[in-house]
């Protein structure tokens, strides 16, 4: 991969890596540092990486760096920071102007999911984000996390139940809305 191709690759995957890091470490500055480290490492190890598995490779590096950062942050402060969630909600003028009410609801729902996610165990959060948000297959996740495929499946299943329970306990109205939507 020459520098031109690398540049295109960075442009394609920058938001995926940055979002994953932001949602996982919940600190914008840390997420920026992690994103930078991921792509610099990719450039340095270009010769050793299988071209068909480049996305999985960057996600593995991002995941490992996020876990390291979470552990470092845990040793520095107690409890999760709210900064990450605040940093996530950047303005989206088009959406905001067209449907301000819908935008507010969208923001509110994202906030609730992120807050519930933040209360889940680290491994569960990673599996949920990688599978649903990053759209990675379960066998790829098992490679990235160096875990057995069945363990990943079980973690995903339990993660869904835990997240559901967390949301239900904190926002019973929101769950009611889902039921209402289904009936409609």
């Amino acid at each position: 991969m020459d520098h031109g191709t690398f540049k295109k690759f960075v442009q394609t995957h920058k938001n995926a890596v940055f979002s994953y890091a932001t949602y996982l470490v919940r600190n914008r500055q840390d997420a920026e540092d992690i994103t930078q480290d991921v792509f610099v490492k990719l450039w340095q190890n270009m010769d050793k990486i299988d071209k068909n598995k480049t996305k999985a490779w960057i996600m593995r590096v991002a995941h490992n760096l996020c876990i390291d950062q979470i552990r470092r942050n845990k040793s520095l402060r107690s409890g999760p920071s709210e900064e990450g969630n605040q940093a996530v909600f950047v303005q989206n003028p088009g959406f905001h102007d067209a449907d301000p009410e819908g935008y507010m609801e969208f923001r509110e729902m994202q906030k609730e999911i992120l807050e519930a996610l933040a209360r889940l165990p680290e491994k569960t959060r990673c599996v949920l984000l990688m599978h649903y948000f990053q759209d990675l297959k379960l066998d790829t996740i098992s490679d990235i996390m160096n875990e057995n495929l069945n363990t990943v499946k079980v973690t995903l299943h339990r993660g869904r139940k835990l997240l559901h329970a967390e949301l239900k306990s904190r926002y019973p109205d929101r769950v009611g809305e889902a039921q209402h939507a289904y009936r409609m």
């Binding site: 938001n15 979002s19 729902m109 759209d135 997240l163």
Partner: peptide, 21 residues
């Protein structure tokens, strides 16, 4: 109801906003 809630939850996770780098 259980299925509707789970589907809504998954949709919510899928629709999490991609944060621009």
């Amino acid at each position: 109801m259980m299925l509707a809630e789970e589907q809504s939850l998954i949709q919510g996770l899928r629709n999490l906003k991609k944060v621009p780098c």
